[in-house]
Amino acid sequence: MWDIFINPVVTLLTWLYALLGNNVVLAIIVLTVVFRLLTYPLFAKQQESTKKMQEIQPELKRIQEKYKDDREKQQQATMELYSKNGVNPFAGCLPLFIQFPIIIALYQAVIFALAATPDQLVDLSERLLIPGLDKLIPLQSIWLGMDLTQPPTPPLNPTYALILPVLVMGTQWLSFRVTMARSNSQKDDKADDKPDAGGQAAAMSRSMGTIMPVMFGVFALSFSVGISIYFITSSAVSVVQYWPPFKRILDRIFRVNQNPPEQIEAKPAKATRSIGNTGGKASKGKAGR
């Protein structure tokens, strides 16, 4: 079933490889950037939904306290709150679920297209959908002296290839930091006076922000160098996407956050400003804790 997503991406990656002068690294970077940009509206929607949920968090907490012995009333009041604020609890999940097949297809495409072993190569024969691309096989898999099909560890690759897992960790950390900083600042705007509101979730996010980069770094040690390139590009694009000037351009291009609902509409300038101030504000918040 997943081949429906994976095969077109493998084909596209191979086609880009030919288009970009038989450079597989450029092909991976371009494809990752294009996919991240195309899925930007989904990211934006997901952020928007998260933001809304955070805004009603204090009210939600109050309902939970008030009806802690009556689950039915609690549920009813929660639904009313959602309805009143135009919040759909699924709205944050749906874009996430739509993105997953794309992200997974991209990740798998890199593995399949590079096909380092006979077992992977035999599988590639069923994945190229455009006639004529077969002639490109095998793809040029050496880049800057590194074998893209092998893990970055010696003796499979030169010692300097170990910089890639470090870069994977670094870009992942930066990506998480930028994303979390934005979320925290949004929450702080609303819930500065209620320090425990969503505190658990924030703590969990902070832990994730530490654990995930390390985890990805470890993955990068055992996955091929090509996958590390994908991880690094993906995180770098994510960082750039949240960079305020770029975000504003993307919002304009994809026409997202153009007609925000009432709650957000009340302070559109601040919402924009808060993105710009996010880093400093969130850092201060963290330092204070």
Partner: peptide, 19 residues
């Protein structure tokens, strides 16, 4: 998310060397 990741992301990858 976990089930989706495991079923799509991990199972689909061919990690064997040869036959």
């Amino acid at each position: 998310v976990f089930v989706l990741l495991v079923s799509a992301g991990c199972v689909g990858a061919r990690i064997d060397i040869s036959w």
